[in-house]
Design a protein around this nucleic acid. Structure first.
Lengths: 249, 249
DNA sequence: GCAAAAGTGTTCGTTTTACACCCATGT
DNA sequence: ACATGGGTGTAAAACGAACACTTTTGC
């Protein structure tokens, strides 16, 4: 049994040279048909299509989500969705908020609990995922047409991520195990949508004592190779608890 | 029609000399009986009472809440609950998060969306409320036995309030229209659970240019009367947007 | 040798901290 | 006159902002 009135939707963020990205799920007409109530009239369908033109296109996109089973813990269910989508366990995953406006889904009342997740690009190979074919990364600035209020959910996820990243070290979940200072900086720049001063940024982040110089350097780059760093997990946990201040410039 | 599986629970905060307080709702045995499923066996009831001893006492307490009607917007419903409990409109009200663990409510699956609200003590006279008799303020350090996971919801509300208060000027919703600097300081001290230095606190808050000296003073106090301030709503809105930094000492 | 990104220090102004005494009022 | 809380300034340290050039590497 599932709880028809409650769903979970996941905003899955990734980060690489091209910027901040979101993993979306393609919906085709058949999947849509199935999600509609059975007794729907053709008149109602017509009206539905008028109000939500995105549903008439052959393909449109949605967050990866599903209805909560009656016998599953909410957070656990969100984790299991994330596993279905990415094949990954133990990924950073947090609630955004719950979206419950009346007409957010046409023809049925569904309250959805939004979650956001931060994916390490070492794990971008999502082939293990059970529905990998219909999933695709989109640049945050070039989102395709999305169904329902999923654009708003993504927007709220970004707002939440921005706040989080300023005061807690969570952004680092978007980085590979070893990373350069420039990568962290451009991560912050992309998330906060702000250019930062390299010298000041480096001073700040090295003063935190969060980073460990791995002793290694980038390979095969057409310029001076940058040092690779990793985290001191103890300091990381401490900063997660106590908070930090990354409101720069 | 209501959505049986989704409820809203409100953590209603108040503040005065005695500190930070929460408005709770007293549940008696009859109200409890009614909320149980009808086909419950006496064996099951026995087990229920064993697992949740608080339910056996004649009186215990809960957050003010209810199940979401199918035809009501979630946020609107939370507002209407708050109105029922306090007789007040336009009160600060925000989602905490959604609590969805499997056994949080025995014998039925209920996912609850937590909200927290900040009440101005000018409005402590809650007689207009439709259920005022069963409501009572409790000091946060002296909470009575609470049903279900309502203690956890309050804890999360406090955590959320703490974070919010450090970076946004929301705490001021807990103050009367005119207030003294000492009142603001003790508000912050209570919420953040930290003593602060008076001179530094005053310097900081007056530098924000958020306060307007009303020109008036306290009356009938057995010591030097303090100045009464109110807010510059424009600056208030600006700080709400841009954030501020109240991580002191 | 040139293109591309890595890496680095100093100065100046602002903010934060630590700290102790006099003032106004009611009883 | 005393008890109670209101109100104030300064110096030292830490932090944030602004700013330009040299180094390393691959091609």
């Amino acid at each position: 049994m599932i709880l028809n009135s409650v769903s979970v939707d996941c905003v899955i963020f990734g980060f690489d040279k091209s910027g901040l990205r979101v993993l979306l799920n393609q919906i085709d007409k058949e999947a849509l048909q199935q999600s509609l109530p059975e007794q729907i009239s053709s008149d109602q369908i017509k009206k539905l299509y008028e109000q939500h033109p995105v549903l008439t296109s052959d393909r449109f996109w949605s967050l990866f989500g599903g209805h909560v089973p009656e016998d599953k813990d909410l957070d656990e269910y969100a984790k299991s969705l994330l596993f279905q989508a990415t094949g990954l366990h133990n990924v950073f995953l947090q609630q955004i908020r719950t979206f419950g406006s009346l007409k957010r889904v046409p023809y049925t009342r569904v309250i959805t609990v939004g979650y956001y997740s931060l994916i390490n690009p070492d794990h971008y190979n999502l082939k293990q995922s059970s529905i990998a074919k219909s999933l695709q990364w989109f640049n945050l600035n070039e989102l395709p047409p999305l169904c329902f209020d999923h654009d708003k959910i993504i927007e709220q996820a970004l707002i939440k991520l921005r706040r989080e990243v300023m005061y807690h070290p969570v952004g680092f979940h978007l980085l590979p195990e070893k990373f350069t200072l420039t990568e962290i900086q451009s991560l912050y720049e992309v998330i906060l949508n702000k250019k930062m001063d390299t010298r000041n940024f480096r001073k700040k982040i090295t003063n935190m004592e969060l980073l460990i110089d791995s002793g290694k350097k980038q390979q095969n780059v057409a310029h001076r190779a940058a040092r690779l760093y990793s985290f001191d997990t103890k300091v990381y946990e401490k900063l997660k608890e106590e908070g930090l201040n990354f409101r720069i410039e």
